[in-house]
Amino acid sequence: MRAVITVIGKDMVGILAGVSNICVERKVNIIEVTQSIMQDMFAMIMMVDISGSDVPFATLRDDLTKFGEKNALSVHIMHEDIFNSMHRV
């Protein structure tokens, strides 16, 4: 199953590394990353494959949320199908 991780917040050193680390430690494969910085605001979108993940989805979500809280970032992970169904006819 593929999921989308979004990270939004104030730009700082180590955001991409931090999120990537969480993914690697849990055997989550990163497929694609886009990021942009608009007036100090950092927005990163990461497409990941979690079929090989060794933790349940809920644990992965909680770990990402914790990382977000620690760094004052808004971090979400959602099933890819939500976006596909909403934005593609």
Binding site: V4, T6, I8, E32, T34, S36, A43, I45, M47, H76, M78, E80, I82, F83, N84, M86, H87
Partner: peptide, 12 residues
């Protein structure tokens, strides 16, 4: 890849 704008819209 999904459109960034679309993804942010949904999250918002």
């Amino acid at each position: 890849m999904l459109n960034t704008q679309d993804i942010l819209e949904t999250i918002h």
